[in-house]
Design a protein around this nucleic acid. Structure first.
Lengths: 340, 340
DNA sequence: TTGTAAGCGTTATCAG
DNA sequence: CTGATAACGCTTACAA
């Protein structure tokens, strides 16, 4: 193994000089810098991570805690994980993957052992068991998702209220008056109420402003449950021409049910989905969809965490940030002017 | 920060004793062990990862290299990543996430710096640029995917040939004679030919044995390309009653096209998909599908890697293993007896 | 069964 | 602008 001492010897400088060439915490003459850099390449030197962590008291590793549950749309989780990894690398950090299977102790373990310098929590619940561990100044964290009480924390999440409002606006602009909002099953509302309820609330408020009549119906997302929901909706409000689908799993069934019941999309009925863009494009017809910037979620979380870390390191109070990312509505083939 | 010295003092023993209590590399009297364990809990001691890595010359971290491309079915990637993480934890290892965005140097970096003790490569290409870095005894690795030349390597992959054969058998058993095999677009065949071609070869061979006539048609997976493929298939072989779909993206379009062309599934046409179980269940009708054990892929890779690491550590030759995991065919509502 | 002490490869503080 | 050197917290011979 090539050590810093080998490099120093080869370049004819001291080990500290080599170290400072890497860290940039000291001004180095151009000549020595060149010599050191040459030696580094020639010898194939890679600083030892363990030694660096021990002496420097930071590991340059961020821990990312992913949920085990799969009711969150998985491709999004992956997209976030990858964007976190890439963004962390831009700042010289690596990313450690932790599953929630370990429970909150996992967070504790990597933080207390110094394996990671900070933690990013994905899929944060309203009342999340991991939060007590990261509130306060010991271990710095950034949360993806907005908990009940975000005081003392940095969080980033989608602006779900705006997402809901965009759906209402789009359908209102097209002249629709009777809308059905197909939600998640009751289980989801209990857990991440934040997610589901903020969207609904945003939709409801804007719908009221725009004078829309609407019906909210929970739906498990299976074909059977969607069929049941669909039948009830048309029973209660036969004049329904607009559908907002929150539960991605219900999209496919809904399209089939519309077709089966003799309704053409978008001539007879318009469908707006709350889902990732690439999902929306897969359907026939392609869907008008409201999508949040998943990648950005990971990027912002990394930046928030790093800001907290540097503040804490300087003995300052880490800044509590709260960022909601604005979603965008992409028009597809599934929405059109209200019939008649 | 609580150090091993603090624990030693508190328990009235030496630091080495504390260390050995953790590592189990020495027999410790029940009495001392208890005292140490009490102190550990009372003081809230967590061994410092950096110091451990430095002194012990292993970081207890495995690096997992994930592809950036998203043409691989993403939920599967995530499932593998999580199963790797869980399996690694069972052995006291953590998992570092590396993206291929860094290029092969990323592997080099984490291995040479001692950040990770070993590497798991996902989505291995036939002629993968990362392979030269991990062949040979310097850095131990396990590959998910089968490269061109697997000598000196441990690999695990799906048994794609069997997957193809299962499709042929199932349709043959149901009395079908004319089959269409809807493949991936040309791009995929060039890259992971392994994946795509082994499936096709397995299907082809079994189809021949069972006396099936069949047509192989590449397909990009968009609605348009699937429609084109579909039309050509029925033009060339109007008597086609069985469809094997390799490209998951083409499943939805195919089902729509069958319905639109007046064919009922499974009465008029049977569809077998090569895709994950949970995808197969989402369709209406639910699909008969051949599925590989994704989770197991990650588990086996971890085990292979750990075996290589312990062998290398003992100065032995690491064992080159090659494991192909058998897929299973799950019968859904999309296949039935051949018509007439 | 336990203790002592010499590293492990960096970083960062003092000097110069 | 550069060098020497004392930590950093743990593992592991070597002793006892």
């Amino acid at each position: 193994m090539v050590t810093i001492a080998d490099v120093a010897r080869h370049a004819g400088v001291s080990t500290s000089t080599v170290s400072y060439v890497f860290s940039g915490k000291r001004t180095i003459s151009a000549a020595t810098r060149r010599r050191v850099e040459r030696s580094v390449i020639e010898l194939g030197y890679h600083p030892n991570a363990g030694a660096r962590a021990l002496a420097g008291r930071r590991s340059y590793v961020l821990a990312l805690v992913v949920p085990l549950r799969t009711d969150v749309y998985v491709p999004i989780m992956m997209e976030i994980a990858i964007s976190v990894t890439i963004q962390a690398r831009r700042h010289g950090y690596d990313t450690l993957l932790i599953t929630n299977g370990e429970g909150p102790e996992g967070v504790q373990r990597v933080a207390a052992s110094g394996l990671a310098d900070g933690v990013i929590l994905m899929d944060v619940q309203l009342d999340d068991a991991r939060i007590p561990l990261v509130r306060g100044r010991r271990t710095q964290a950034a949360l993806i998702g907005l908990p009940d009480d975000p005081s003392g924390l940095s969080c980033v999440d989608h602006d779900f209220a705006t997402a809901g409002a965009l759906c209402a606006d789009h359908l209102a602009n097209l002249g629709h008056h009777e809308i059905a909002f197909i939600g998640y099953g009751p289980g989801i509302y209990q857990r991440h109420a934040a997610y589901a309820e903020r969207t609904l609330a945003g939709f409801r408020e804007r719908a009221a402003q725009r004078g829309l009549r609407f019906l909210h119906r929970p739906c498990e997302g299976t074909y059977e449950s969607t069929a049941g929901t669909f039948t009830r909706i048309l029973g209660d409000r036969p004049g329904t021409t607009g559908f907002v689908v929150q539960n991605e799993a219900a999209i496919g069934p809904l399209l089939i049910l519309l077709r089966t019941s003799g309704r053409t999309v978008p001539e007879d009925a318009s469908v707006v989905a709350l889902c990732p863009a690439h999902l929306a494009e897969q359907y026939v017809p392609t869907l008008t969809a409201v999508t949040g910037p998943a990648r950005k979620l990971g990027q912002v979380a990394v930046e928030q965490l790093l800001r907290r870390m540097t503040a804490a390191e300087r003995g300052e109070q880490p800044p509590d940030e709260r960022v909601l990312l604005t979603p965008t509505l992409t028009v597809g083939q599934s929405t059109g002017p209200a019939p008649r």
